[in-house]
Structures are given as C-alpha cells and as structure tokens.
Amino acid sequence: MVLETKNDQLNDVEELAGNNILVTTFEKLWNWGRSWSFWPLNYGCNCCPIEVMAAGAGRFDQARFGYEVVRAVPRQADLLTVAGPITLKMKPAIERVWAQMPEPKWVIAMGNCAVSGGPFKDGYSVLPGVDSIIPVDVYIPGCPVRPEALFHGMLELKKKVQQGEYRRS
C-alpha cells in the first residue's frame, strides 16, 4: 500500500505521474474516495458544537454527504473539526489529538473562536486561532456557524481534496 505521508514523498509521486499513468489514476481514485468520506472528530467547547449537533440532526443531515460517521477516536478520524476557542489548558490536548490522527488528515476551523480567538481575543487564556498550533485547511467564519455554512466549508474542503492539494507543514 503506497502512502504519501510526507511532502517530499508527495513530490515523488508527482514526478512519477509524468511517466506513469497508473499512479495518477490511483491518485484520482484515492482523492475521490477521501473527498466523499470525511469522518470527523469534533472538538468543541462552546456554541459551535451545538450547531455541529444540529448539522447531524434531521433538519440538516450531514449524512447526505456521507460525513456523518462521527468518530470519538482520533485514530479513525480524517477531519478534525475545531469548533471553539483553544485555551492554554486545552492546547496540549488538541496537539496530541492531531498527532494521533492518521494521515491524510484535515482540519476545519469552525467559528470565529477557532479561526482567530474571536470574541475572546482579548482574553489572557485564549490562543489567537487554532492555526497557531496546527495547520488549518478551511476557515469558516461565523459566530456561531450555521449548519449550512459548515456544509459549505466541508464541500469547499472536498473540492480542495479532489484537486489533490495536500499540504502539511
């Protein structure tokens, strides 16, 4: 099983792509599969998780996109939905959960708290956004984010994955 977990390996795959059609076809197939099956791990401590719950419930139904398999364990998740301010005390927990997730993995910063610290940016105990500790793929501003806006963010991420963009710092 070939797995491109690091950036340099990804570049190798891209180089190979010129000579070998098979690799690119597989890449496309994999990206297709990945983009249709984000299994989220929801981190949340504030208002946005309630909207995440609403997004999973009947009226909005995240399951339509196939993204409803919410994992409680980082080991089986593909997508870390950070929905809430990262406090200094929470920071190590987030870092650890992120490290425990298997590649390829993505992050959505949901809501202004996760994007930038949001309303609590003046607070002494709040980090200025989740991107100060882990790389973020899609930012969804809002306070709190509507479930539809969350879906929009996820579909944007889907586009990104289907185009094969995969960056890791």
């Binding site: 504030n46 609590f120 709040v126």
Partner: peptide, 27 residues
C-alpha cells in the same frame, strides 16, 4: 479547559458591549 477569561474581559467593555458575551456563557 474552557476558561476564556470572560469576567476579565467584562472589565474592559462597556455595559452594552458586554451583552453579546453573556450569551456565550450558557449558549
């Protein structure tokens, strides 16, 4: 883990400005 220093923030906001923050206590 969710300590966002709301009480301290309140001291730097006017009475009206703090209204939206209270909603974020018990959301």
């Amino acid at each position: 883990y969710v300590h966002r220093s709301v009480e301290k923030i309140a001291e730097s906001k006017t009475y009206q400005q703090f209204v939206p923050y209270t909603a974020r206590l018990d959301y």
